[in-house]
Amino acid sequence: VYLDRLLAQCAEHLSLLAAPSTLDRVYDFDPDAFAQLIDTAQRSVPLLVLDVPHIWTGWTKNVLVKADEIVITATPELANLRNTKNLVDMFKRLRPNDPPPKL
């Protein structure tokens, strides 16, 4: 019931927790703000995919460090490649027993 209230049903096997529809307010979240929601979702569905924004905040770092698998998408530009390398290096350091991120 908790998830049903938060998610928008897009298809029979696809529900989305969408971003805010308006940019009138600033949405700064506590680093652990999504932990309970993710734990609940993981217990309720066979696969959970998180598409996090390209900003670097405490909550995005926490979500990614706790993820089972990380896939990084980047365009082949010098700045993106530098940032991607930094992300991969950081995740290897923070997640030494997990597989490295996929690019």
Rank of each mutant, 00 (worst) to 15 (best):
H54T: 02
D32P: 09
N86C: 03
D68T: 02
P96W: 01
P20Y: 05
K61P: 03
L37A: 00
E12C: 08
K85S: 06
A18R: 09
L78N: 06
S21W: 10
C10M: 11
N80W: 00
V65K: 02
S21C: 09
N62R: 08
K66V: 01
D89C: 08
V45R: 06
D51H: 01
L16W: 02
L16R: 05
L81N: 03
E69Q: 15
D51W: 07
L50F: 01
D51K: 06
V45W: 08
Y27Q: 10
L48Q: 10
D39P: 07
R25F: 13
P20R: 01
G58F: 01
N62E: 13
A74W: 03
K66I: 04
V52R: 03
D32E: 15
R95G: 05
L3F: 03
T84W: 03
V52C: 07
K66D: 15
L64T: 08
N83Y: 05
A8I: 12
R95Q: 05
K85F: 11
P99M: 11
L37P: 03
N97W: 00
V1D: 15
T40Q: 10
N83W: 07
L81S: 06
L37V: 08
E12S: 15
K61F: 13
E69I: 10
K92Q: 15
P20L: 02
R95Y: 00
D32I: 02
P53V: 07
D98L: 09
L81M: 12
V88R: 05
V1W: 14
D30I: 00
L81A: 08
T73D: 05
K61R: 14
